[in-house]
Nucleic acid binder design. Structure first.
Lengths: 238, 238
DNA sequence: GTCACGCTGTGAACTCATTCACAGTATAGC
DNA sequence: GCTATACTGTGAATGAGTTCACAGCGTGAC
């Protein structure tokens, strides 16, 4: 089974979108339906499900609960993942709140910050420790995953401390490229670069009539779904 | 010039990392130096600069201020971009604060929320309006870019309203796949999927010794830079 | 019972992105 | 001035990732 990051990302959205359907309304789904749900092609959906070894039937498509279970088996760690957050600033707190409310399956079991008035507080169920307690806390709670939401200059230092104490993968909100030992994984979320893309392609779409096709080609969602826009959407006026 | 989203993303990080260097310390840079700075290959850096039509000299490499200027010319809209935020919850406020502090070049000129106690307030320099004022405000301030940080169910409705009133590109923090008219651009930031990747590949790295190479191949940063880790890093103990 | 349909599973084709590899060239050293 | 060096610019090779296209099959209609 060749597992790429893109595949994991898509599996995650498959599951999320399947769960979002009214439960029980549809216990089976065709590749083209799931594809429409997540904005991919039916062929890719079929290939992905083939890749993870989940098979459907030509007659009824794929079994929804079974697929959700299969994805869970693949993605979810057996005991539930304990995650640490470093940096309880505005971004850090937003992350804690967001996951606490929307994705409680990700358990943030410890946060770390330098600020004395944050240490000791509990943010959305996650206790904030002093940075000095990091080593002890990480080892005691067997934390294997970390989220870095500190200023860029501190990122590498923090990352190094995390991986030295059992953390094996990081979500990095810093623009810094982190040096990691082999085997460790870093997923970067670069908000500035993302917004930069928005501004660039938005400007493009304005000038030329086009994102797609000709010359300066915009990607992804850009003009995907040329069909069925406009009038027959959930109306939003007034 | 064939411009892809990946290219824009890299250009953004090239610039950010060049600017982060002590100004004036280095007015020229070689492709392999820039590559090391951003975690890419020298060949890709050269290809990217070639793509945007920026040339260096074999003797001295690329001119740093010139390159920064060239990227700015390409990425930055002439008048500065006016951006709107919809959804001033925890995530929305964090976004406002983050960009206000770290990237003030992105000007958030209006925010929108349903909650009456937020309307009228100013968050990090960005005034919050009622959702009903969206149409007027967007048109009056000529806002062309939007950031969606509302609950998933509201995302499509909000997106539709935005693009109907002049917004041409969106940054979408919702897992919802937005239906857009052709020419409009959506950049998705899926925090749950990102964390899911972290958990998955972190777990992999634990079990097998490997992310790279064999069989279940992890991507990106995973074990990139096997060199120079460990002891000679900015020390972080105690 | 038989037929036609529409779906899955998948090898092969294709497209896009990255890396290789080297010709061309400007400098520094001798 | 001439040679060795180290880099850029870029066509070609490679390698992912995605889509095509179709064989195979279970189901519903008649």
């Amino acid at each position: 089974m060749k597992v790429t990051a893109r595949l994991i990302e898509r599996l995650s959205t498959y599951r999320r979108n399947l769960q979002r359907q009214i439960p029980g309304a549809k216990t089976r789904i065709y590749s083209h339906e799931l594809a429409a749900l997540v904005g991919e092609t039916p062929a890719l959906v079929r290939r992905d499900l083939m890749t993870i070894g989940f098979t459907g039937s030509p007659a009824h498509g794929y079994d929804v609960p079974g697929l959700i279970a299969k994805i869970a088996e693949l993605l979810d760690p057996p005991g539930g993942a304990g995650i640490a957050l470093v940096g309880v600033g505005a971004l850090g707190r937003a992350i804690l709140r967001y996951f606490h409310r929307v994705h409680p399956e990700f358990r943030f079991v410890a946060a770390f910050d330098t600020s004395p008035d944050k240490v000791g507080q509990v943010f959305d169920g996650c206790p904030c420790h002093a940075l000095d307690d990091m080593e002890a806390t990480l080892r005691q709670k067997l934390i294997a995953f970390g989220v870095i939401a500190v200023p860029a200059d501190a990122a590498q230092v923090v990352a190094t401390r995390l991986v030295r104490n059992g953390v094996r993968a990081l979500l990095n909100f810093t623009p810094e490229r982190l040096q990691m030992p082999p085997g460790a994984y870093v997923e970067d979320v670069d908000l500035a670069a993302s917004l930069e893309k928005v501004v660039f392609f938005g400007r493009l779409g304005a000038t030329h009539a086009a994102c797609p096709g000709a010359d300066m080609a915009g990607p992804e969602s850009c003009a995907a779904n040329q069909d069925a826009y406009a009038s027959d959407l959930p109306s939003a006026n007034s």
